[in-house]
């Protein structure tokens, strides 16, 4: 087991190195002159040259790569073209807002997906199963930004039940001192006992969380269902029944443990998609997180910001994958 974990960690490090190499290549191979961008549109030739030296672009490539890696070790992802502030700082500003959204959405997707998947598998080929299968495919076919708009239209435009976007109402932000303990408003408001704030934050969260969680739900549902169906057909399931174990025991103890592996794979995929979808959804709901930061950076062609956040998200994803692999190793076959 330790050997397996060690092997996985080493592999992740190789992958990480590859990711850094690719992102380095992208930033250096691009057809635009980085120094000119940095210096701004009205800069003179001297200013551009000065910027080139300042950014270290006059050095040979391997030297540049070496510096790039060194910077990364100090969590230095460069400075934004637009604000000229460190990208790391800007990412950290939006981090907790995104974490709150992603965690809630993924949890919702995971729970709903697993539950519906099991339900669907248990009632295979019945009406309810068809509904579940159809919705799982529909869920992964929907553009999240469009779904966001549609929900805003219904719940804000027509029903006026939920706010249009943002994390809290403007009134709150102006009138109250916001707690800053973990950065997740929902949690902070509970910790400080501020239930008004909690209700307000929750109202703002509902729509974005639903929109982001749609994709994971569909993916996990589908995967759980097919994995479970495959397992239910295995000999050892029939064998367990033949030994007189009750159906309930067979279903819960034997089948579910066997489907951990495929479900975890689905979750890692789902997680990757939520990371991506947050860019679109946060932009729609003006959610002040990393996703909105990327969307803004894209509109402004702010390369260090784009690359920085891409690199950061890839890092998070690699770590997530590593953890998922280790959890999946509870299935002894994986460790072989």
């Amino acid at each position: 087991m330790y050997k397996y974990i060690l092997k996985r960690v080493l592999l992740s490090i190789i992958v990480l190195f590859g990711i850094i190499l690719i992102s380095f290549c992208i930033t250096r191979v691009i057809p635009t002159d980085v120094a000119a961008k940095w210096a701004g549109p009205k800069a003179t030739a001297e200013q551009v040259a000065a910027a080139r030296v300042e950014l270290g672009l006059d050095l040979p490539y391997h030297q540049q790569f070496f510096n790039y890696c060194g910077d990364l070790l100090h969590f230095d992802l460069g400075k934004s073209y637009i604000t000229h502030r460190p990208v790391t700082t800007e990412i950290m500003n939006g981090l907790m807002a995104t974490v709150e959204l992603v965690i809630l959405a993924d949890l919702l997707g995971l729970i709903a997906g697993v539950f519906l998947g099991m339900y669907s598998a248990k009632h295979k080929n019945k009406f309810i199963d068809y509904i579940c299968r159809f919705s799982s495919i529909t869920f992964v076919s929907m553009p999240s930004f469009w779904l966001g708009l549609a929900l805003q239209l219904i719940f804000f435009g027509i029903l006026s039940l939920l706010p249009l976007g943002g994390r809290i109402s403007t009134a709150f932000a102006v009138l109250h001192q916001l707690p800053d303990i973990t950065g997740m408003l929902l949690l902070d408001s509970l910790l400080t006992g501020n239930f008004m704030l909690f209700a307000d934050a929750l109202k703002h969260l509902i729509l974005p969380v639903i929109v982001v969680s749609i994709y994971p739900t569909g993916l996990v549902l589908r995967q759980t269902r097919s994995a479970l169906l495959e397992i239910l057909n295995e000999d050892y399931m029939t064998a367990a029944k033949s030994y007189g174990l009750k159906d309930r025991v067979v279903y819960w103890r034997y089948a579910l443990k066997n489907c951990i592996g495929p479900t975890i794979t689905a979750i890692t995929y789902a997680f990757a998609y939520t990371l991506t979808n947050t860019c679109l959804v946060e932009a729609i709901f003006s959610w002040p997180g990393i996703g909105k930061y990327i969307a803004n950076a894209v509109t402004n062609y702010d390369f260090p910001a784009i690359m920085g956040t891409t690199l950061f998200t890839a890092l998070v994803y690699v770590i997530f994958n590593l953890v998922a692999d280790i959890i999946a190793a509870s299935d002894p076959r994986v460790r072989m």
């Binding site: 000999d235 050892y236 007189g244 066997n258 299935d331 002894p332 076959r333």
Partner: peptide, 14 residues
């Protein structure tokens, strides 16, 4: 009760 044919697939691998 039953003794199954394929000893690999008749035991739960996990």
């Amino acid at each position: 009760s039953m003794i199954f044919q394929d000893p690999m697939s008749a035991l739960n691998p996990v």
